[in-house]
Amino acid sequence: MKPSLDWQHDIDAIVVGASAGGVTALRELLGALPADFRPPMLIVLHLPRHRPSTIAEVLGAYCALPVYEACDKQRIERGSVMFAPPDYHMLVEDEASVALSLDEPVLFSRPAIDPLFSSAAAVFSNRLLAILLTGASTDGSNGLAAVRRAGGTAWVQAPEDATASMMPAAALAYAGAEAVLTLEEICQRMRNRA
């Protein structure tokens, strides 16, 4: 168990996955990030595939950091939040950039959480924090397992605290986690960076 993290030194990036109920949860999470928060945050929220998304603008209004939707080979900037665009998977290409892909949807979703988490694990290994939030899907289970295999840290929203419990419950059963937390506890850790 790693109950606390030294943010300045241990974490180079944070990946977040959310599905049903995710907009509300992410609004709280992004709202909790202090303006001097350094690790870049990469997010997959399951989205309708065939229309442009306004999620980055909408949630950007609640966040002290710049929030934007990724383009291919977009640079990963410290102190920023990046969303996967609709109908593309977002992968971590290297420590400095993401890559998009039109590979098959995973569990009917594109973007999907597994490709983001797995690709981030391959690049950041033990310097990665993965957070899996509410959702009615089993996406994220494989990705979370990959994160933990690579030595990264997994936080999962407590199923009873989630709007939709299936995704966190499935991931806990399949991959386990370093911590099972309520959304408020996750937000608190962000605020305290502890």
């Binding site: 290409e93 797995s118 391959a122």
Partner: peptide, 9 residues
């Protein structure tokens, strides 16, 4: 080719 996609495939 981009590394992340290659690893996945």
């Amino acid at each position: 080719y981009a590394t992340a996609s290659l690893r996945r495939r």
